[in-house]
Amino acid sequence: METVQSVRAIIETGGKQYEVTPGLILRVEKLEIPEGGTFETDKVLLIRTPEQTLIGTPYVPGAKVIAKVLKHGRGEKIIVFKFKPKKRYMRKKGHRQWFTELQIEQIVVPQ
């Protein structure tokens, strides 16, 4: 296993896919890891280095991404408004989604 600085990867977490590079700060769905902890995932869908591109089926075997948990928080409020004309029906709700902020430390590329 080697670590490469000019590498990109696509990972899956929280039902979504993210393109990551070392040093990137990323907001993902809330993870149950304390602040300052380490997040490690082997759900790597694709790795791209200057020499090669590895595509997983569905994941690349032996590849992993290591990140540091910076903080937890809640996003901006969005308004959910439901309205039915001529029926006197209106509902207004607000929602703030929980998130975890990660800093990608390294992407481990299999040999």
Score class of each variant (00 low, 15 high):
54 L>D: 07
84 K>Q: 06
66 I>N: 08
75 G>Y: 07
84 K>L: 05
58 P>M: 11
68 K>V: 01
57 T>Y: 12
83 F>P: 02
81 F>P: 00
74 R>D: 04
61 P>W: 12
91 R>F: 01
90 M>S: 01
68 K>W: 02
91 R>V: 00
51 E>H: 15
85 P>G: 04
77 K>T: 14
57 T>N: 13
70 L>R: 10
59 Y>K: 12
82 K>G: 02
61 P>D: 11
84 K>A: 04
72 H>L: 06
61 P>N: 08
91 R>S: 00
71 K>Y: 06
66 I>V: 13
61 P>S: 10
71 K>T: 07
56 G>I: 12
85 P>V: 02
66 I>H: 09
79 I>L: 03
56 G>H: 12
52 Q>T: 14
89 Y>E: 02
76 E>M: 12
67 A>Q: 09
66 I>D: 07
93 K>L: 07
62 G>C: 10
68 K>F: 00
58 P>F: 15
83 F>M: 09
65 V>L: 14
91 R>W: 02
62 G>V: 11
60 V>C: 14
65 V>Q: 12
69 V>H: 10
67 A>T: 09
65 V>W: 09
94 G>K: 06
72 H>D: 05
66 I>Y: 07
55 I>S: 12
55 I>D: 11
76 E>A: 12
82 K>N: 05
69 V>N: 09
72 H>V: 04
78 I>M: 07
63 A>D: 06
77 K>W: 12
88 R>Y: 03
58 P>W: 14
84 K>W: 02
79 I>D: 01
69 V>D: 09
83 F>H: 11
90 M>Y: 02
85 P>S: 05
58 P>E: 08
81 F>K: 00
92 K>A: 00
54 L>S: 08
51 E>M: 15
77 K>Y: 13
66 I>G: 08
81 F>T: 00
89 Y>H: 03
90 M>W: 01
79 I>V: 04
91 R>C: 01
62 G>W: 13
85 P>R: 07
60 V>W: 13
66 I>A: 08
60 V>P: 11
56 G>Q: 11
88 R>V: 03
67 A>M: 12
94 G>Q: 05
61 P>H: 08
82 K>H: 05
81 F>G: 00
72 H>M: 03
88 R>E: 04
94 G>N: 03
69 V>C: 08
88 R>P: 01
79 I>A: 01
84 K>G: 02
87 K>W: 02
89 Y>G: 03
52 Q>R: 15
60 V>Y: 14
85 P>N: 05
52 Q>M: 12
76 E>Q: 13
78 I>N: 07
94 G>T: 03
60 V>A: 14
67 A>G: 10
94 G>H: 04
83 F>R: 06
87 K>A: 01
55 I>E: 15
74 R>N: 05
74 R>E: 08
68 K>E: 04
71 K>S: 07
66 I>P: 08
52 Q>G: 10
75 G>F: 07
91 R>K: 04
